[in-house]
Simulated assay, not measured.
Amino acid sequence: MILHNVPEFKSADRSWSSVATGMPNEWYGSEESIVVAENVLLYQRDIGGWPKNTPFHKPMSEPQKAVVIEDKNKQDAIFDNGATTTEMRFLAKMYSSVRNESYKTAFENGLRFILKAQYENGGWPMFYPLKKGYYTHITFNDDATSRLMRLLRDIYNGETLYAFVSNNELISGAKKAWERGLTCILKTQIIVNGQPTVWCAQHDEITFLPAKARAYELASFSGAESVGLLEILMDIENPSPDIIQSVKGGIKWLEEHQLRNTRWDSFTNSEGKSDRRIVTDKKAGSMWARFYDLETGLPYVSDRDGIKKSSLEEIGYERRNGYSWYTALPQKVLDNYAVWNEKWGK
Rank of each mutant, 00 (worst) to 15 (best):
I78W: 00
N73L: 04
S97D: 06
I138K: 00
M94H: 11
W124V: 01
E87F: 09
Q75H: 09
G133L: 10
A83E: 09
P129Y: 04
T136E: 04
Q75W: 00
S146Q: 12
L151P: 12
F164Q: 10
D76T: 14
Y103F: 15
G173P: 02
I155L: 13
L170V: 05
R112L: 13
T145V: 13
F113C: 11
V98R: 06
M88E: 08
N109V: 05
L130G: 07
D71F: 12
F107V: 00
E87R: 01
Y103K: 03
N109Q: 12
K104Q: 15
S102P: 09
G133H: 08
S97L: 02
I78V: 15
A83Q: 09
S102N: 15
Y156D: 03
D71Y: 13
I138G: 02
K104M: 11
Y156T: 05
N73H: 10
G133D: 01
E101L: 14
T145D: 05
L130W: 03
A92Q: 13
R99V: 04
S96T: 12
L161D: 04
Y95L: 11
T105R: 12
Y103H: 07
A163S: 15
M88H: 06
M149Q: 04
N121F: 12
G123Q: 04
K132H: 01
H137G: 01
T105S: 13
N81R: 05
M88N: 08
I171G: 12
Q118K: 07
I171E: 03
L115F: 09
S166Y: 01
Y156P: 04
K116C: 07
K72Q: 11
R99L: 11
T160H: 09
A92T: 07
L151H: 02
R150G: 08
K93D: 03
K93I: 00
I155F: 07
V165A: 08
N100M: 02
N81P: 06
S166H: 08
K132P: 10
G123C: 09
D76N: 15
F90Y: 15
A174Y: 05
L170H: 08
R99Q: 14
N73V: 13
I138M: 06
E70Q: 15
G122I: 01
W124K: 02
K104I: 05
M94R: 01
E70M: 14
F79T: 03
H137P: 00
L111M: 11
N141Q: 07
L170D: 07
M88I: 15
H137E: 06
R150K: 10
S146H: 07
Y119Q: 04
Y135P: 01
T85L: 08
K74V: 08
L151V: 14
T136F: 03
R89D: 07
D71Q: 14
Y162D: 00
M126G: 06
V98C: 13
L115H: 11
S102H: 14
F113R: 01
L111D: 06
K93E: 04
I171C: 08
S96L: 05
D71P: 02
A106V: 01
N157E: 11
V165E: 10
E101S: 10
Y95E: 13
T86S: 15
T84M: 12
P129K: 06
K72T: 15
I114C: 04
G82R: 07
N168F: 09
T86A: 14
N100S: 14
N100E: 15
R150N: 13
D76Q: 11
Y95T: 14
R99D: 14
A106S: 14
M126T: 15
N157A: 12
A77C: 04
N167R: 08
